[in-house]
């Protein structure tokens, strides 16, 4: 049974990792928490649902289009809710603005799509037995898509000029500007990439649990945020690691202890790790000079 729980954990963990990366990258560049991130995810999932059910699009095309929509929505959130705030108690103002954006998107979704939970059947589910373990075609799809997304992100951040610019921005936006880097473009791009991955993750989880509803982002977002924090927010590797840890612990806890406390395990792990390592597993120790 252990390996079965482990596989289930890796699958949901990959999804948490993709969502966590969006929180982490935005935090890395702007030192703000984008609370509307999970609601962008929810919106993209609804778009995916419409594309799949009303327009009968093939799964992969639907995922790409819905995630592209998420990217545009993510960039718009930054333009509307964060970029205009430049002075005063900026961090507090951005926090309030982020929470406002989150509530606005949830309510807008309820207005457009209604508040009932919709089923999401994008593909016919088939289950295979491999060496005593059961794995569905859906789970395989999730694993493959997650692996591809993480690989693309890794190449983008560590092997391209855009990635260098993103890493420079995460050290200091002003110093990045002095290198000739168009930081506004990089910030927009960071939101777009984070939202794109969240869009993909949202659809995968929506299809996995076959449930799409306007507040679906809340718990998923909270767990992904916990993953980002425990991995060390701002660290790309840390977020991925955090996502998998949360996913695996959650599935092991649900399997061996009780499924009723499934959601509590994620946060329990986060608390324990933060007590031992306050900056997260791979987070940089920042010393704020006074």
């Amino acid at each position: 049974m252990f390996f079965q729980h482990l596989i289930n954990g890796i699958i949901v963990g990959g999804i948490y990792a993709m969502v966590a990366l969006g929180y982490s990258m935005v935090y890395g560049v702007l030192q703000i928490v984008n609370w509307a991130h999970a609601d962008v995810l929810m919106f993209a999932t609804f778009i995916g649902l419409i594309l799949a059910t009303k327009l009968n699009m093939p799964v992969l095309v639907m995922i790409i289009l819905a995630a592209a929509f998420a990217a545009i929505l993510g960039m718009s959130v930054e333009r509307v809710a964060y970029r205009p705030i430049k002075s005063g108690n900026r961090k507090m103002a951005v926090l309030v603005s982020a929470l406002g954006m989150s509530t606005f998107l949830q309510n807008l979704a309820q207005l457009i799509f209604g508040s009932t939970t919709r089923q999401f059947k994008a593909i016919e589910s088939k289950t295979y037995m491999v060496g005593g373990l059961s794995i569905s075609n859906l789970q395989i799809l999730i694993l493959v898509v997650t692996a591809i997304m993480l690989l693309i992100l890794y190449i983008l951040v560590y092997k391209t000029k855009v990635g260098v610019a993103m890493r420079a921005c995460s050290v200091s936006v002003n110093n990045a500007k002095l290198m000739g880097i168009n930081t506004n473009l990089i910030i927009s791009g960071t939101f777009a990439i984070g939202a794109f991955m969240a869009g993909v993750a949202g659809i995968l989880i929506g299809v996995y649990y076959s449930a799409v509803y306007p507040t679906m982002g809340y718990l998923l977002g909270m767990k992904a945020f916990a993953a980002a924090i425990l991995g060390g927010i701002g660290s790309i590797m840390g977020s991925v690691l955090g996502g998998f840890i949360i996913g695996i612990i959650e599935c092991l806890g649900a399997g061996y202890i009780s499924p009723a406390y499934r959601d509590a395990f994620a946060f329990l792990v986060m608390i324990v790790i933060l007590v031992i390592r306050p900056s997260g597993l791979m987070g940089a120790k920042r010393i704020d000079k006074v």
Binding site: R167, V171, S172, N174, N175, K177, L178, G180, T183
Partner: peptide, 24 residues
């Protein structure tokens, strides 16, 4: 004019405190 465009135009600043990217 935005700061990053001025770099392209040929103005390069070494900021106070150096502004090195310490993780690179």
């Amino acid at each position: 004019t935005e700061a990053h465009r001025l770099v392209t135009d040929g103005i390069s600043q070494v900021p106070e405190g150096r502004g090195i990217f310490p993780t690179l």
